[in-house]
Nucleic acid binder design. Structure first.
Lengths: 201, 201
DNA sequence: ACCTGAACACCGTTCAAGT
DNA sequence: ACCTGAACACCGTTCAAGT
């Protein structure tokens, strides 16, 4: 079973991340374990600790990758529209679609808790901020009569709202609420909020 | 260490739930273990399995209790207002306050995942529905010109929105978005949405 | 009848020892 | 130098055996 020198540090890292993502996608956060990842790439558990600080570190890196994918896709699909309102609404729909297609990986971003008192590293927080900034930037052209502070708050409200729909949809709690189409609900939330926000008085 | 006949089945159940809630409140979901709960009430692990099916069952019962408390408090604090709009807004504020005061217990309701394919029992789903119905009922007097179906959807949108704010606030992701007051954000979300929803045209 | 205590199959993490 | 394999301190869950 000795595989020494078969792979570089970086190769092992990539293999481990890919294997871990597969486990998460298929079985969710509960299905992940260091031993399973190690087995999947043909190494011993100990080897993982040469490449990651611990499981939290590994999960953080998976989440970083997921956030990158999500951000790329939001940019991509938004680029298909010219109308500012449609560009903003598209962000919400892309967010929902992604969560729907990759529920376990999407959930992991927001469910993963670092040990008490520890907070995510700066490079991770920036990836979250970047996504939020996309909402803010897309809202701006629609809200010329508002202060930057008001726009920031509105962007946070919109993102929170869409995010909440995702969470409740994934945990199937919206069934109870008699919701039929999650995309319709998202549209209703965003367009009514925007109508209220933009309309003067 | 033999405690036989010291307590009835029901007493052990209550003691275990109380001990488990304390652990959750203080240390979060990760801090909970069957062995810790057993130790806290002076019994062996095996005893817990005479009283609960498994850990998931225990957590479901904790969550049921938390949902009851939350619902009671929403009713209570709403009763302080007569104005329909204020009654509705109060629901959001109470929801946020509760999540802020009991983050770990509140999180557990929505983070806990049953094993693949299993869904919560009917009595649990009813507790979630009851909370949602409260939002719907409070929205009704404000939306006389809308169909029951539209009101249902609007209630779902409002609840999702407030819920999303809670989640992002607790996981400290709104800091990144430059939000100062969570209660202000909640007010902005609800009042702008309602303005858009109620305003004709 | 009620509860224990030990067992089983798993964990995350560390680190001396092997090649 | 690189990785292993065994160890340590934990898990959830079960169930024969003790009182």
């Amino acid at each position: 079973m000795a595989r020494r020198n078969d792979h570089s540090r970086d190769e092992i890292r990539e293999m481990a991340l890919a294997a871990a993502e597969k486990i998460i996608s298929e079985q969710g956060a509960k299905g992940l374990s260091a031993r399973k990842v190690a087995a999947a790439i043909g190494y011993t558990v100990g080897t993982l600790y040469l490449v990651f600080d611990n499981l939290d570190d590994l999960i953080l890196q998976i989440n970083a990758h997921t956030l990158d994918q999500l951000h790329d896709r939001m940019l991509e699909e938004q680029a298909r529209h010219k109308d500012p309102m449609e560009r903003l609404l598209q962000l919400g729909h892309t967010y929902i679609s992604f969560a729907d297609e990759e529920p376990h990986r999407w959930e992991l971003i927001f469910e993963h808790r670092l040990p008490e008192g520890q907070q995510p590293p700066g490079w991770f927080r920036e990836k979250v901020a970047r996504m939020f900034n996309l909402v803010e930037a897309s809202l701006e052209p629609l809200a010329a009569n508002h202060s930057p502070q008001e726009i920031k708050q509105a962007a946070a409200a919109l993102w929170s709202g869409v995010h909440g729909i995702c969470i409740l949809a994934i945990s199937r709690q919206l069934d109870v609420a008699g919701v039929e189409s999650v995309q319709d609900l998202t549209h209703s939330l965003m367009s009514n909020y925007l109508k209220g926000f933009i309309t003067p008085g």
